Measured scan of single mutants.
Amino acid sequence: MSIQHFRVALIPFFAAFCLPVFAHPETLVKVKDAEDQLGARVGYIELDLNSGKILESFRPEERFPMMSTFKVLLCGAVLSRVDAGQEQLGRRIHYSQNDLVEYSPVTEKHLTDGMTVRELCSAAITMSDNTAANLLLTTIGGPKELTAFLHNMGDHVTRLDRWEPELNEAIPNDERDTTMPAAMATTLRKLLTGELLTLASRQQLIDWMEADKVAGPLLRSALPAGWFIADKSGAGERGSRGIIAALGPDGKPSRIVVIYTTGSQATMDERNRQIAEIGASLIKHW
């Protein structure tokens, strides 16, 4: 067993022997301040990774656009098919120029040779490549099948209805392509620590998230040296922004954090800054 596999296998073990965790309302004060600064709703939840206990939450059962955070769930569904012998990570998928959609920095470079399922998941999570996500959605049967996968996990809230990039439209009061912070946090925890996926697939999923290259201005910008984070960000229309993450000190994750916002007129930089400040408060009061 590799060191990384050992780390993920012992996530519940280490967490069980940690000192009790206590909620700190100071972080919620910052979440509410972010709402004021952005002029928009902000949803927040913080779960203990081992027990699933909610440590703090704000608007945990209000719907927010998922945006690209759905790509972690998508690759979880792909990995479940791999575990069941219905898919192979090494299978190569070929596609054409007509398949390319807006923001496809990886797939646009491989029109000639195609990409493997493993490479597509890596591109979808680490670079948020939209064509990679659409190609992977095709392998599982489309958005409705991802929703069905989530329902089978016990998540009857999260739903995907459309493809990239239309799913980022974020129309107010439109339930399409949305989740709730509580539902997303619980589902992410199941994917990373539950028995739904094999140990190898859980490790692969967290490795992809740990290698995320496009979430630097968010929670990662607030992390002290030595902290662990595996995350996936999302951005959408109407001032929408979000991030889902597993993080913790001492090089291992111990909490799940989900943050979503929508309806702001603020710039992307300002949305990023507010999420980073929430992260800084979380870490300060850990």
Rank of each mutant, 00 (worst) to 15 (best):
E277T: 11
E87Y: 09
P181F: 01
T69W: 00
I278T: 05
K109I: 15
G76Q: 02
L135Q: 14
R92W: 14
V72P: 12
E35M: 13
T187E: 06
L135M: 14
E210G: 11
G226L: 04
E277N: 13
F58W: 13
L79E: 02
R273H: 04
T131C: 07
I54T: 12
T262R: 06
E210V: 10
G226Y: 06
M127G: 11
D48P: 02
R255K: 09
T179S: 03
E195H: 14
A246H: 11
R159I: 11
M115E: 06
D155H: 01
D129F: 00
R202H: 08
V31L: 07
A77C: 05
D231N: 08
E195Y: 04
I243G: 00
I283P: 03
R81F: 10
K190P: 05
I140Y: 05
L247G: 01
L247C: 11
L192Q: 07
L282I: 14
A230Q: 01
T112R: 12
F70V: 13
L74R: 00
V78F: 05
E56S: 05
P224D: 07
T262H: 05
A133H: 00
I243N: 03
N168L: 08
V42E: 00
I171S: 15
D113T: 05
R41W: 03
G76D: 01
E166L: 12
V101P: 02
E195I: 03
L218V: 05
I171F: 15
T186C: 14
G43M: 00
N272C: 05
K30L: 07
G226M: 06
R220V: 10
E62K: 04
R176D: 05
Y44R: 00
I206S: 05
N134Y: 13
A84D: 14
P253M: 09
E26P: 14
N173F: 09
N152T: 10
L79P: 00
T179H: 00
L219N: 04
A280F: 11
A148H: 06
K109Y: 12
L282D: 01
R176F: 12
A148D: 09
A133G: 10
I140R: 03
H94G: 05
Q97L: 08
A77K: 04
G194M: 09
I256D: 01
G263H: 05
G90Q: 11
R162G: 09
I244S: 12
R255I: 08
T131G: 07
N98D: 11
N50Q: 10
L28R: 08
R63M: 08
V214W: 14
A235C: 14
Y260I: 03
D48C: 10
A225L: 06
A211D: 15
A182N: 06
G141A: 08
L199W: 10
M153D: 04
Q274V: 05
K53W: 13
G242I: 00
Q37D: 06
Q265G: 09
A276K: 14
P60I: 15
T147W: 05
E175V: 07
D155Y: 01
G242K: 00
A225H: 11
L100S: 12
A183M: 06
S128M: 00
G234E: 01
V101A: 10
L89S: 10
H94N: 04
I256L: 08
A84Y: 12
K190T: 11
I275T: 14
E62C: 05
L247N: 01
K30R: 08
D231A: 09
E210F: 14
E277A: 12
L205T: 04
G216L: 12
R41Q: 09
I125P: 01
A84L: 13
G43R: 00
S122K: 08
F70S: 09
I93P: 02
N272H: 05
A124Q: 03
R63A: 06
T131K: 02
A245L: 10
D250A: 04
L219T: 04
A235E: 03
Q86L: 04
T261R: 06
L146N: 02
L73Y: 09
E145N: 12
L120V: 05
I278M: 10
T267E: 07
S233G: 08
Q37V: 05
P143N: 07
L160M: 11
I275H: 02
T186Q: 13
D250Y: 04
A222Y: 05
E119I: 02
L188M: 12
M209H: 00
E169R: 06
L219D: 09
E169K: 05
L135E: 13
F58R: 12
I256V: 10
N134G: 05
R81T: 09
R41S: 13
H156S: 11
T126E: 10
D99A: 09
T116Y: 09
L197T: 07
A246N: 15
R220T: 12
I283V: 14
I256Y: 04
E195M: 15
I275K: 01
L191P: 00
A185R: 00
N272L: 02
D231R: 10
V101N: 12
L49A: 12
G242D: 00
K32G: 12
L74Y: 01
L205V: 07
F70K: 01
M209W: 03
I54R: 13
V29Y: 13
E145P: 07
R91Q: 14
S128Q: 01
S57M: 05
R92V: 12
V117W: 02
L28H: 13
L74C: 14
F64P: 00
V258D: 02
P25V: 12
L196D: 12
Y95K: 02
V106T: 09
R202Y: 05
T131R: 02
T69Q: 01
V42S: 03
H24N: 12
N134A: 08
Y44Q: 00
P25F: 15
I125G: 01
W286T: 02
L282P: 01
A276P: 01
K71E: 00
S128P: 01
G279T: 07
G142S: 06
Y95Q: 02
M268T: 13
I229M: 14
G236C: 10
L49R: 10
L28I: 05
E164N: 01
G279H: 03
I244T: 11
V78K: 02
H94E: 04
F64T: 02
L199G: 07
D269W: 15
Q274M: 09
H110M: 09
S254Y: 04
P249D: 07
S221V: 08
F58K: 15
P249T: 13
L79M: 14
L150P: 01
T131M: 14
V117D: 01
Q37R: 06
F228Q: 15
A183G: 12
L120D: 01
P181V: 08
V42Q: 02
R271W: 14
T198C: 12
A211L: 15
K144G: 06
K190W: 06
G142H: 07
D33N: 04
G39N: 10
N173P: 06
I244C: 10
L73R: 01
G39I: 09
S128L: 00
R202L: 05
P181W: 01
E102Q: 05
L74N: 02
I171K: 15
L247W: 06
M127E: 12
A276W: 04
K32F: 09
L73M: 08
Q88Y: 14
R238K: 04
L196H: 12
V101R: 07
K232I: 00
P181T: 09
R176G: 05
L167N: 06
G90F: 06
L47V: 08
N50T: 12
A34R: 02
L167S: 07
K30Q: 06
Q203L: 04
L191F: 08
S254A: 08
L100R: 11
R189D: 08
T262D: 06
K252L: 15
L74K: 01
G239K: 02
L100K: 14
E270D: 11
T116P: 12
P60K: 10
E35Q: 07
G279N: 04
